[in-house]
Computed example of a mutant assay.
Amino acid sequence: ASAATSLPEVRKPSLAIDLIVDGKRVTLPDTEPYIDDAGNTMVPIRFVSEKLGADVKWDNGKQIVTIIHKGNTIVMPVGSKKVTVNGSEITLDTMAIKKESRVVVPLRFVSETLNTEVKWDGAWSAVNIVSPEYQSKIDNGAVTLDRWGRELRANQNSDEWILMSDTPDNVYKIGKYKITHTDTQRPAKDYYNLFSKEDLDRIVKNIKEYYRLALNVDFRSINPTNYFQQSFKLQGSNGYLNPTPFTNTANFIKQNKVISEGYAYPDPTTLYYFHGTVFMRTKFKFRVLNANDYSQFNMDSIDPSASSESPKWVKKGQWYETYSDVSLFTNHQDFQSTLKIGSTENMFVKEYYVHKELK
């Protein structure tokens, strides 16, 4: 009974939201942004201090957060829609709240009060935040952005990749593996340009949706039949998928008492074609909150094939960031518009991924 009461509450999984601040996609070390019932994007206060450069003060006794930035002061009592901006009281349609012992605040209100521009791109679930100083760099050509508002490195010295300023070098050094064995190859540097932003957004959203399902599992609520049916909708197929691997996975999650959460952040500029398969390099963020065996927690890691592995380095409750390639598939003639998730083993293919603990 005491073990049961120590488990986290059953949560509704959130779709990954990319946060781009002054041209760089950011990774938060713990609590992720989410959209509340009123449609507001909520972010942890740590994001405001570290990424927006504000001075944040927390009064634990009064449960009040104070945000100071370039002469602007916002006072936000937790649990109240009444806030104070530079001494004047304002009533919002949302409020600062406590979530998993972290204070989260409404992003748009805070960002715009701190004089930054906020744009929501629902096509791929992303928020782009631009400060006046960075906008000046854009306007005078000091920086170059891709179609999603991310900054390209000034030195594009790769024959394979479009190099992004927010992506570490080791991510571009991850090897490429063959699934099929035709001879044709097309590097991301030219292949992704065959796709419109609309097509790439759809692929990104498909990967995010699939891993919202695959990484957010709870042994107390998972239903094997529903798990297969939802997976089927998100996967590229010939119109048929064998339900057995999916129902076996769901049943193992029950047996292994898995509770996990996570997110996928595909990079549309990395779409490439390699020996008959299309791939998109993807950043993952996840943690396993409960399990008998912490190395087997989702479809990618449970009973892996000879080419994949169960990550033995996973620790209870620790957030991880990993990068690997997600394979895509379609048998439709309208190739660009119908690519979907093509494999259930993407995250832990042996020797073809990198990982680190988030601090």
Rank of each mutant, 00 (worst) to 15 (best):
A1F: 07
S2A: 15
A3P: 00
P8K: 03
E9Y: 05
E9I: 09
L19E: 02
L19P: 00
I20Q: 05
V21W: 01
V21M: 11
V21K: 01
D22E: 10
D22W: 01
G23R: 08
T27Y: 02
T27D: 14
D30Q: 06
D30T: 03
E32H: 03
D37E: 15
A38N: 13
M42E: 12
P44C: 08
I45R: 03
F47H: 05
V48C: 03
S49F: 04
S49K: 07
A54N: 02
V56L: 09
K57V: 14
N60T: 08
I67F: 08
H69N: 14
I74S: 04
V75K: 15
K82G: 00
T84M: 15
V85Y: 07
V85Q: 08
V85D: 03
V85S: 05
K99H: 10
S101C: 02
V104R: 02
V104E: 11
V104S: 07
V105F: 08
V105C: 09
L107S: 04
F109V: 05
S111D: 11
E112Y: 14
N115L: 06
E117G: 01
W120L: 12
D121N: 14
D121G: 07
G122V: 10
A123Q: 07
N128G: 06
N128Y: 06
V130S: 03
S131D: 13
S131E: 14
E133A: 14
Y134K: 07
S136N: 15
A142L: 12
D146S: 09
G149V: 04
E151V: 13
A154E: 09
Q156V: 12
Q156Y: 11
S158E: 11
L163G: 08
M164Q: 10
M164E: 09
D166M: 05
T167N: 04
D169P: 04
V171F: 12
K173Y: 06
H181F: 13
T182V: 13
T182I: 14
D183P: 00
R186L: 15
A188C: 08
A188L: 09
A188W: 04
K189D: 08
K189Y: 06
D190L: 07
K197I: 07
E198K: 02
L200P: 00
D201W: 10
Y210H: 15
V217P: 01
F219E: 01
S221P: 01
N223F: 09
P224T: 11
T225R: 05
Y227K: 03
Q229G: 01
K233M: 05
N238W: 03
N242Q: 08
P243L: 10
T244R: 12
T247G: 02
N248G: 00
T249N: 10
G262D: 06
Y263A: 11
A264V: 07
A264G: 06
T269F: 00
G276R: 12
M280V: 13
F284D: 01
N292K: 14
N292W: 01
Y294H: 03
S295G: 09
N298C: 15
M299D: 10
S305W: 13
S307E: 06
S308I: 04
S308P: 00
P311S: 11
G317D: 13
Q318F: 01
W319I: 05
T322A: 13
Y323K: 00
L328I: 09
F329E: 10
N331K: 08
S337M: 06
K340P: 04
G342Y: 04
S343G: 06
T344Y: 07
M347L: 12
V354K: 06
V354C: 03
